[in-house]
Design a protein around this nucleic acid. Structure first.
Lengths: 212, 212
DNA sequence: CTCCGCATCTAACAGTGTTAGGTTTTCTAA
DNA sequence: TTAGAAAACCTAACACTGTTAGATGCGGAG
């Protein structure tokens, strides 16, 4: 039964492709609507019914494009990391390896401040931790490359470059997360992140001593 | 009508106090049950009905002790910070100011690793950010004191001690959060946190340079 | 024109936090 | 001791959530 339907798809390409195009189009419209809801009204308002209403559809249509809500949210997370990656690439254009590293910190915190709800979803417990990690990989790779360039330029041999990269990534994440608090604020968080990065890099240049 | 009831409370202390004791007792039982559910089955299982069932009560009784679920969760957050604070105090016993600072990092990551779900609730978006911050204050104060002792011992003048404390707090938070990921792991996170702290402190001792 | 497949909708299910109303137990006061 | 008040407690319900099943209708294929 199902074989006949799939074989029917082989011939009759024209309408099929148009249908596929429409499918992809509504799929993207769903993602865009979800992003809009998230950025404007926060994660609490991100409901299937709300999204469906915004694109003038009924709720169940969403499930013809995404297995469940988590799959949809994962798409938003991916989009968020895409934006963050763009910021990182821009930082990589900065002249001077040291200023380039600082720019990374700046861009990271800027992104977190400009898209607080998206940032929250990217690091919250909404989706599986490993999938989040996989979505973050491209940005981490850029950071890793920049860090390698930095250590080359300063003749610093990092004992474990991957660990070093992880330290910076975690530090940026932690300090950027402080930005949402009333006592810290985004501008202050940017300064904090830059200062932390400066201190860490300086520590690595000087050679981190073993205590005890 | 209500005036008579309140005046009736003035005499008849004995039974009244016993009632109050019972009230407080069930309130604590609720918190303990909630903690148990959270630590064993995770945040997704932390439901009012589940908690009520575990203490052999009906769901609405919870609302006679807490205004809403957030208020109950906030209590769990407070308890979590209490445990973390205990770890910090233990770290403060460590001989040698440098090892004491490292021990702080170690205790922080250890706590996050031993109570992953509680840690998640403490930093997740479940409760208001400002209330979370207020709950974290005592631990931050201890950190601040230790940092002041450290800067004294090393004749380092921190431009802004509060900012410095915030940097360490954020860094620990960020790196500890990495611990839950499959690629990092808790043991590795502990090493990362210690190394990050060493690097930052070394940077402050050397004097963080202004770039550009 | 017929028929089939696809897209879409309405209605429902299980579960959530939360509240209203009534019932039972417990204490107070005559 | 007993009438009545107050507190404690439970059942039932509401308004949501994510998600699924079944009915409906539209458009292209033979």
């Amino acid at each position: 039964m199902s074989e006949e339907t799939t074989e029917a798809k082989w011939r009759s390409m024209p309408t099929s492709t148009r249908r596929a195009r429409e499918r992809a189009s509504t799929r993207e419209r769903i993602i865009e609507a979800a992003l809009h809801v998230l950025e404007t009204d926060g994660v609490a308002a991100l409901t299937i019914r709300r999204i469906a209403t915004d694109i003038e559809y009924s709720a169940p249509v969403v499930y013809q494009h995404f297995a469940n809500k988590d799959a949809l949210v994962l798409e938003l997370v991916a989009h968020g990391h895409c934006l963050l990656l763009a910021g990182f690439r821009q930082a990589a254009e900065e002249p001077g390896i040291d200023r380039r590293m600082l720019r990374i910190a700046s861009e990271y915190v800027r992104f977190a401040g400009e898209h607080p709800h998206l940032y929250q979803v990217m690091n919250g417990a909404v989706v599986d931790a490993d999938e989040r990690r996989r979505a973050a990989e491209p940005a981490i790779v850029v950071l890793k490359e920049l860090l390698a360039a930095w250590s080359d330029a300063h003749d610093v041999v990092l004992a474990d470059p991957d660990e070093a990269c992880e330290i910076i990534w975690g530090t940026l994440y932690g300090i950027a997360s402080l930005g949402g608090l009333g006592t810290v604020g985004n501008e202050r968080a940017r300064r904090l992140a830059e200062q932390a990065l400066r201190a860490i890099l300086l520590g690595w240049r000087t050679g981190v001593p073993e205590i005890e």
